[in-house]
Write a protein that binds this DNA or RNA. Structure first.
Lengths: 222, 222
DNA sequence: AGGTTATTTTTTGTAAAAAATTTAAAATGG
DNA sequence: CCATTTTAAATTTTTTACAAAAAATAACCT
C-alpha cells in the first residue's frame, strides 16, 4: 500500500479509503479471490478499522468485493466472461435509456451535450490526448443522456454497470469512432428518434465489447 | 420502534438492524424525506452505533435511504412517479433477462421452474391463499429465470429493482393472470423462443404497472 | 491418525473522544 | 431597531481504541 496521495478533498476517511481501494483494485494490485483483512488495511492506511470497514462495504456493494459474515472479505473473481457480460448488460440498459431520453430530453440538455461533445472533440484531436480527461468527458456525455432519460433507477443501474468492472477499459474504442457515435447520438436525440438513438447506443457499446474481446484474445495467445 | 421480534437467526446485529429498518420502511412508518438519526435508532434498538450505521449504508445502497456526509440520512422520497418508474425499468431488464434465459436455460432449471410453478398454482387455488407464501414462490420463480440468463450483473440489477420499492406491491396482479403468464413463460423458455419469452415477461410486468396505476388513481380520488 | 481442547487471529460490537454541522444567542453595523 | 454576521452551545456524525464473539489455527491427548 503506502499511498502518498495528499489525502485531502475527501469529506470522510471512509470515502478516502474507498477511493484508495478502488484504485488499487483497478490497477489489479490484488488477485481475484484474495482475502483482504480489514485490520491490515487499516494499519496500512493509518486509520482505525471503522472507516476501512465502511469502504469495504461500499466496494462490496459495487460488486468489486465479496463479504461473508464473520469470515472476511475477498476480491470478487471477475473473469473475462464477466467483463464481456458487463458489456452485454450495458448494451441492454444504456440503449433503453437512450430511447427514453429521446422522448424526454430538453433543449438545454441537448446544448449541454453539444458543449461536452465539443470539448471531447477538442481533447481528442490534441497532439498528445489526455486519456484521463477524455474518459471524464466521455462519462459526462453518456450520463447527461442517462439523466435525461428521467429514470433515477435506470440511471443508478447504469452507474452500477460502469463501476462493476474493476479493470479500466476505456480506450478500446478508437477516438474517431467514439466521436462519430456521439455525434450520431446527439442528432438522434435532437430529432427525437428513439429507435435510432437506441440503435446507435447499442452499437456503440457492442463495438467496444467486440474490440475488447479481440484484445483479450490476442493477449491470451501471448 | 420497540420491536419485540426474537432477534435470533441473524448472523450479525447489522443484518438484524437492516431487516428491522427495511420492514419499518415497507410499512411506511417513516415519512418521505424524514431525517433518521443513527444515534436515536441505536438507542431504540439497544445497539451501539456501528451496526446501525452499517444497516443504514445497506439500505442507502438499495436506494431506500439517502445519506449525505456529515449531514445524516433521510428517507428517500419515492414518489408515485418513481414507483411507476420501477416498473418501466423492470420491464426493460427483466424482459431482456427472459430473452437471454431462453437461449441458455438448462433442462434442470426448467424442471425447477415447473416445480415452483406447481407449488404456486396449488397455493393460489387454496380457499384462503397465503399471500406471503405466494410472494415468496413468485419471487423464486422469477429469479430462477434471471439466474438462468447467466448474467450475474443483470441478475443483481433486477434484485436492485425488486428491493428499490419501499412499499410492497405484490398482489395487484390477479392470481389467475400471474398463473397463466408463468405458464406461458415456461413454454416459451422450453421451446427456446426468446422473442416470445421477452414479450410475455414485458407484458407480465407492464400489466402489473397498469393495474398499479389504476389502483393509485382510485386511492388518490378518495 | 483422529478428534478435542487451547491459543491465536480476525471480525464484530461498545463506549467515548474528535470533528463537523446545525441551532441559538450575542454582537456588530447600517 | 432590524438585519446580518460572529461567536458560542448543543447535536449529530465520524473516528478511535478497546472489549467481546466467532472462526481459524495450533497443540494436545488418548
Amino acid at each position: 500500500m503506502a499511498e502518498k496521495e495528499p489525502a485531502p478533498r475527501f469529506q470522510t476517511k471512509s470515502a478516502y479509503a474507498a477511493s484508495v481501494l478502488r484504485r488499487a483494485l483497478a490497477e489489479g494490485r490484488y488477485a481475484a479471490g484474495e482475502r483482504l483483512m480489514a485490520t491490515q488495511l487499516a494499519r496500512d492506511l493509518g486509520f482505525s478499522m471503522t472507516p476501512v470497514r465502511e469502504a469495504l462495504m461500499q466496494l462490496a456493494n459495487d460488486g468489486l468485493l465479496e463479504i461473508a459474515p464473520h469470515r472476511g472479505v475477498r476480491v470478487a473473481d471477475i473473469a473475462d466472461d464477466d467483463l464481456v457480460d458487463t458489456y452485454v448488460v450495458r448494451a441492454i440498459v444504456e440503449s433503453a435509456a437512450a430511447r427514453l431520453a429521446a422522448a424526454r430530453i430538453r433543449p438545454e440538455e441537448i446544448a449541454q451535450l453539444r458543449r461536452v461533445h465539443r470539448q471531447f472533440v477538442d481533447a481528442a484531436s490534441a497532439r498528445d490526448p489526455d486519456v484521463a480527461r477524455l474518459r471524464e468527458l466521455n462519462e459526462e456525455f453518456h450520463f447527461i443522456i442517462y439523466a435525461a432519460a428521467g429514470s433515477p433507477l435506470l440511471r443508478r443501474m447504469i452507474r452500477t454497470a460502469w463501476t462493476s468492472s474493476p479493470r479500466d477499459t476505456f480506450g478500446v474504442l478508437p477516438l474517431k469512432t467514439a466521436r462519430d457515435d456521439h455525434g450520431a447520438l446527439i442528432e438522434a436525440l435532437e430529432t427525437r428518434d428513439g429507435d435510432r438513438a437506441e440503435d446507435v447506443m447499442r452499437e456503440h457499446i457492442e463495438e467496444s465489447a467486440k474490440l475488447l474481446r479481440l484484445f483479450k484474445k490476442s493477449k491470451r495467445k501471448h
